[in-house]
Nucleic acid binder design. Structure first.
Lengths: 338, 338
DNA sequence: TTGAAAGCGCTAACAT
DNA sequence: ATGTTAGCGCTTTCAA
């Protein structure tokens, strides 16, 4: 690894000069010197040492992506198509902006904090975290931060939170179901916390608005977190006389459920209607194709990075609640009863 | 951010002492001092500054994962379930070993190299790269390196290459098809380069062994890279009188193909049999469920990290070609003709 | 237009 | 058992 010092002495100039042309601070360097240094830089294959640069400048060029490990849902977080696409999208744009990405998957905010501090991370994107966790990090981490899909996040929080209008999405699905003649519904999701909880609230709102009962009896929650996926799917089938449609918290669960039902002789949508959420690959692959709510995960990631970079450059945003658009996608998994 | 220096002066001891207890080099420190320093460390919330540490020790605690952007297959690389699971698995184990992960997705080896150099990455895992690219990196990158699914990699290469016996897997699938009474087959994949090429060779070997013709006419390759996915799927349907089974290069393509065929009134496996490769989520979700070849992606990732860490600790390996086991999984997408 | 030198936080060789 | 010091590679202030 050739260093600035070496290049400088080899060229008989000072380190300052070399450093200056590297950083394009050429206003005070003679053209001849610039050319000479640039040539040497190129020929020697000079590459800056980030450790040293960070030390001297007290900034790292690293953007952290903080995610929380979800117990026993997938083999690992990135197997979840949402996180896969999101991290991929973030990585891509971070790279084009000449920053570096450091993932942090952990359910311990202290670890996360340590990580951010130890690497002197310049900015952080927090994904699908409870606002409690954000607050905890905030206590010690003072640099820019953008949230994606943060829940329990107060409207007037100082952080920017990029979300979908989850409630509205779920409301629309529910409304669509009701208008299609379904009046007895069930909710199938990991639980009623976080995003899944937001969606649940949206469903309930629609039920209320249409004057339908929405108590746990009339609109049962089948919780994967409590029963396990297999158990929950079994429960759906077992209780299916009580409803004509199942609203799923994600496409993945919807796809799994449809498969399970097909395996057990229950036809979708003839015997039972099913809806999803996300509109990812699963929605299009499962048969019947899923009626679901589309969001652009890539867009979410890109927006987050752009805003974070802006923040890091000192820009401020008026609006802290950024709601990305969604779109109901009607396919074949819902039976129209009227 | 509190520094060692601050703690030292506050406690009235030297920096060395503090550094020593941080690193557990306590053999030459009095118990009282140890306790005192540890207390101060904890109370002040001391966190090491990686930039400084790296600079002083000339090592970064960073492990790089190098992947090559695939043009136009997925929205981004991590959407591919193989990469998602792999990176997730690698991240997980890297973290437990107190290392940090830096992803590098690029199709430019010069960038990759620059990246590794600039961060002084301690070791690198290269995924699904052509051996040409490995060689290029190798010219300048001298630290430990482990390959995953590297193709064109000579048996006696100095690098450790973790693979599946792709050829054997494809051979087994083909053999299974032949034994099930299929004699006219087709190959549906991105192309015949890299992994897909290895698999293709395995198919051909089986064909040969069973005395069946294997020229392009008798065993057509339907190339997604050339025709695009839609076009290729159309081509499969169009030419389907020429074969009774289609071997797909991956579960994803198999799932997409099956869907496409269902949409066009072709039944699987009655009208046409289909096989996949990987046994990921898609294989179990698609209907009919896919007959495919299972590999453990998580195992691949974990092995790579463990070996890399060993290498970094100076251990050497005799065997450079590590073939992970695979397993044919027979489900419902192949019709048994006899 | 160019250069010298201090210092970022940490480690390690070498005193004491 | 503890402390001093040089130096890792780079940036930046200040001087020339």
């Amino acid at each position: 690894m050739v260093t600035i010092k070496e290049i400088a002495s080899q060229l008989g100039v000072s380190m300052t000069t070399v450093s200056n042309v590297i950083h394009g601070k050429t206003s005070e360097v003679s053209p001849a010197t610039i050319a000479m240094v640039q040539k040497a830089l190129k020929e020697s294959g000079y590459v800056p040492n980030m450790g040293a640069r960070n030390l001297a400048q007290n900034q790292s060029k690293i953007i952290g992506v903080v995610m929380k490990e979800r117990k026993g849902r997938y083999t690992n977080l990135l197997c979840d198509p949402f996180y896969g696409e999101l991290v991929g999208a973030i990585e891509k744009i971070v790279r084009t902006k000449d920053y570096y990405l450091m993932m942090n998957i952990s359910d311990n905010m202290q670890d996360t904090l340590k990580n951010a501090a130890t690497w002197n991370v310049d900015g952080v994107i927090m994904v699908s975290l409870d606002y409690e966790d954000v607050l905890e990090l905030r206590k010690s981490y003072k640099k820019p931060m953008v949230l994606i899909d943060c829940y329990n996040c107060p409207e007037d929080a100082p952080e920017i939170n990029i979300t979908l209008d989850e409630q509205k999405g779920a409301f629309d699905v529910t409304e669509y179901l009701i208008r299609s003649g379904h009046s007895r519904l069930a909710y199938f999701a990991y639980g009623t916390e976080g995003i899944a909880g937001e969606r649940y609230k949206g469903c309930v709102r629609a039920l209320k608005e249409y004057g339908l009962p929405w108590d746990q009896e009339s609109f049962p929650v089948i919780s994967i977190g409590e029963m396990g996926l297999e158990g929950a799917m079994e429960a759906v089938c077992f209780g299916r006389d009580a409803y004509t449609a199942v609203i799923c918290g994600s496409d993945y669960y919807a796809a799994r459920l449809i498969n399970y039902m097909e395996d057990h002789g229950i036809r979708v949508p003839d015997d039972l209607s099913v809806t999803g959420f996300d509109d990812n690959e699963y929605a299009r692959l499962v048969r019947p194709h899923l009626t679901t709510v589309r969001q652009s995960v890539t867009e979410k990631g890109m927006r987050a990075v752009r805003i974070l970079l802006d923040l890091m450059n000192g820009r401020t945003y008026e609006e802290h609640n950024i709601r990305l658009p969604f779109k109901m996608v009607v396919r074949d998994s819902v039976r129209v009863l009227r």
